[in-house]
Amino acid sequence: MRGQHILLRSRALPLVVWVMGLLAVWEGASWLLLHAAKVPLAQSKLPYVHEVAATLWKYSGTLLKEGGATFGNAGVGFLLGAAAGAGLAVLMSLSRTVERLAFPYAVASQMIPILGLAPIIYGIVRDEQVSRIIISGYITFFPVSLNMLRGLRSVDLPAVELMHSYAAKPWAVYWKLRLPASLPGLFSGLKIAAPLAVTGAILVELMGAQHGIGVIMLRNLYYGPSHTYMFWSTVVVGASLGMASYGLMSLIERLVSPWQPEFRPKGGAK
């Protein structure tokens, strides 16, 4: 218990110093740009940290509401995409034909700039809600499916033979062996996809929507220098949404599959 506490402190301390240092440098650079270098649009380029923090605090209600809208829409798409991706992975692991059909396209989709499709999908659907959900879902679909398939296949032969020796039914092999074994793969897919889904949702909002953090981001950008602190606040909120989505997935992973090798304490029994 005490050892863990010290470990935590020793890990957190450098990070705290780094963040503080960075913020201090930022604040200093901002002052330099504004007063020493007298760069045009100095505050837009690098605003005072304390001003952005004040704005964040002042408009926290609005920011939370709009951020929540973005997060919610991205979340719905993310869940749909993840469910479909996991489904496809199971299908591919069950049927060779399905795998042959889908796998090359899934791989190719990892090599092409998927986010580039956002305007196209918005062009087709013309509905902010639906296209946000579609983009987030689409971005989530392939990473989840590929990583989950990798997990389903990670089962080694003796583990399957053990099931065979129990005369296990096919559903039991899936339920008791393959699905639990695929959880690490599934979660690494989810962790890759979650921040991307948020990015996708914000992208759609920038292309013309009524609600969401992207909308106020764009609006404050257009209003010009007078709204620069608000603009930077929206950037901070956007970044936080991305990190929060990742953190949420990590948290769920720890709760659902605490047995994974990476969660084992180091230096313990083997």
Binding site: E161, S165, Y166, A167
Partner: peptide, 25 residues
Amino acid sequence: GIVFQSPVLYDWRKVKHNITLPLEM
């Protein structure tokens, strides 16, 4: 009952639940 060269225990099951696996079946 069969025992392999490696233990082939399922990582996600506690020791007791590894033992009860065939009984669940």
